[in-house]
Design a binder for these strands. Structure first.
Lengths: 145, 145
DNA sequence: CTAGGTGCAAAAGGTTTGCGGTTAA
DNA sequence: TTAACCGCAAACCTTTTGCACCTAG
């Protein structure tokens, strides 16, 4: 996915909050490598380009980005929250061996509702998380022949 | 659901770990009110019947119950982990207003896979969480006529 | 006898907050 | 000018851990 993918249009960032240097660095770190980093990982990457940035500011910036809708939080169990700049509806796959996190896309035209919802309730968000082994980790040992 | 529902058969508890007084109190607290309590809430309920029990023991007991398969952990965002004695495959619905948590059942014969999985990966667990307003909270103000 | 459980207190670890100083609109 | 933001350090809160004692098998 290229960074000019409309899904990731940075101009959205103008809507509602100040796009400061710190927030840009945090967002750039997130767009740079799409590996669902944690706040600490983002902190290290941003610090590389802007040594004065603080961890608290990274948290604050992430919160601003999340509430502006540019970034989504991804939680699995009690592990540190990870962040994702893919704002399209999607799920996540967690590899239990290498701990890689991948986005998984919805089948076209489908909504992930195979559940019986109690009458009258209103759904505003849903999250689907799968755990297992990713392609690499599920593969048998490489053939040496 | 009655407590003699086979899904909740306590005899399963015999398999693999000691069913001590503390673990029984923790499990009973969980079966008693099916409201997905947190560890602290379970601690308070268990303490009521067994004042000497400690929070650390509640955590230890929950861990034992989880790894024996009798109890499942339920996480949403960074909120404290909640615990659920429903061992059937199901999802969770979180009310954003009253914070009630409800189990949601799968539609019969369906699996919750409307996602495109990367080739070759193996799925061992999946979790579906919905957020929104429950029946009560979604209802308009009560009619007074 | 001894492996596993318990309770206590302290530590860990991610995240949030308070506050004085700074900056962008 | 001033509301919003930054960086720092301390606080918070859930969860885990170390350890001495206890107990079931």
């Amino acid at each position: 996915m290229s960074s000019d993918d409309p899904t990731y249009d940075e101009s959205v960032a103008q809507g509602g909050f100040r796009l400061t240097r710190q927030r840009r660095e945090v967002y750039d770190a997130l767009l740079d490598v799409r590996d669902h980093p944690t706040a600490s990982e983002i902190f290290l990457r941003a610090k590389h380009r802007m040594p004065s940035i603080s961890l608290a500011t990274v948290y604050n910036s992430l919160e601003a980005l999340v509430s502006s809708g540019l970034v989504k939080q991804v939680n699995l169990d009690r592990a540190p929250t990870r962040y994702c700049p893919n704002t399209k509806e999607h799920g996540h796959f967690f590899c239990e061996k290498c701990h890689e996190v991948q986005d998984i896309e919805l089948l076209p035209g489908q909504s992930p509702q195979s559940f019986i919802l109690p009458q009258g309730c209103v759904v505003t968000h849903h999250e689907v998380s799968l755990k297992g082994l990713c392609q690499k980790c599920a593969q048998p040992a490489p053939l040496l022949s």
